[in-house]
């Protein structure tokens, strides 16, 4: 674990935190423009966070320690994943610390704590959100694991740096059937886990239809700021993971500052393109009924399963 490697990891965290709210603002702007509205400025999520950090914290009488701990765990797990995932360089210091499975379970840790926090206040809405989130997670998680398995079979490693390097070494694997199938499966899961349409409506404010918003109803002030930032971070981390696992070109294979600068530009372009695609598609689709969501996730599981099967037969 070298000093420059740790510097790269910290740089990734700082970059992700700086970019995440802007990216969400951009997605809202694209959506607003396509719907014929002007929409809030792109920097609005940052302003919201700043405003929330200055607000008073209100804590319900029924809550316990889980309620206070959950925002910290959620933001810490998202930030740690941002440090591990090779956004800038394949020579990240934390590459041997956690492989792709560890990354998935770190993200799951955040989801579980958010659900616990939703239950902790003892309100009907928090319980409803937690129950729905866990239902979706329980169906999405097998897909993630199977899709990752397909990726690790084709590159012979579950370490993110190794997977990215192997795709860089053999560019044809990026267009192989197992890679495309795994990409499709992970894309569906990304949409489910980050609470985008058609699984959850990020702009929903009606209690009966919410999933993510229902769990954070009780939060206010700085805690809410942390949760919002964590949600933005998770979106960027998922999109960055998708982008760099399947289209790794542009990533630095060294830790030289100039290469890192180029890699930052490349990954920003990739994430922005993915986010813009999601924002545009969201304009044209409506939220699925809750009990139709499992069908979507089951389809993604089938894709992931096919990816594993294909990678064994084509290996």
């Amino acid at each position: 674990m070298s000093v420059s490697g740790i510097a790269v990891a910290l740089l990734q965290v700082a970059l992700t935190i700086a970019v995440a709210p802007v990216l969400v603002g951009l997605m809202r702007k694209i959506r607003a423009r396509l719907e014929g509205r002007i929409g809030p400025p792109i920097s609005q999520p940052w302003r919201d966070l700043r405003k929330l950090l200055g607000k008073q914290r209100l804590v319900s009488a029924n809550t316990g320690w889980v309620f206070s701990l959950a925002p910290l765990v959620l933001i810490a797990s998202a930030a740690l994943v941002a440090a591990i995932v090779p956004f800038l360089s394949t020579r990240s210091a934390l590459d041997q610390v956690g492989d792709l499975f560890a990354v998935v379970y770190l993200l799951l840790l955040g989801t579980v704590f958010l659900s616990l926090a939703g239950l902790d206040a003892g309100t009907a809405f928090g319980g409803m959100g937690a129950s729905r989130a866990m239902t979706i997670t329980a169906i999405a998680e097998p897909t993630v694991l199977v899709a990752i398995f397909a990726l690790s079979v084709s590159s012979g490693s579950s370490n993110l740096g190794a997977i990215v390097s192997s795709t860089l070494a053999n560019p044809s694997t990026a267009a192989s059937p197992q890679s495309l199938l795994a990409f499709a499966a992970l894309a569906v899961v990304t949409i489910a886990e980050t609470g985008r349409l058609p699984v959850d409506n990020p702009s929903a404010h009606l209690e009966l239809t919410m999933i993510h918003e229902a769990m954070i109803l009780e939060y206010s002030g700085p805690d809410l700021a942390l949760l919002e930032l964590a949600a933005h971070l998770r979106l960027v981390v998922f999109l960055g993971l998708l982008a760099n696992l399947f289209v790794p070109w542009g990533i630095a294979t060294t830790v030289q500052p100039l290469h890192l600068l180029g890699a930052a530009a490349a990954v920003l372009v990739k994430i922005t393109v993915l986010a813009a695609i999601i924002a545009v598609v969201e304009v044209f689709i409506a939220k699925l009924r809750l009990f139709r969501v499992p069908e979507l996730l089951a389809a993604s599981f089938v894709l992931a399963f096919l990816a594993v099967t294909v990678s064994f037969f084509l290996a």
């Binding site: 950090l53 200055g54 607000k55 008073q56 914290r57 209100l58 804590v59 319900s60 009488a61 029924n62 809550t63 206040a121 003892g122 309100t123 009907a124 809405f125 928090g126 209690e207 109803l217 009780e218 002030g221 700085p222 805690d223 700021a225 942390l226």
Partner: peptide, 19 residues
């Protein structure tokens, strides 16, 4: 970061949101 935020006031014991 949260501790350094401008407002340190925490009001406890408010009723939970019940719509």
């Amino acid at each position: 970061v949260v501790r350094r935020s401008r407002v340190r006031r925490t009001t406890r014991g408010i009723p939970a949101w019940g719509c």
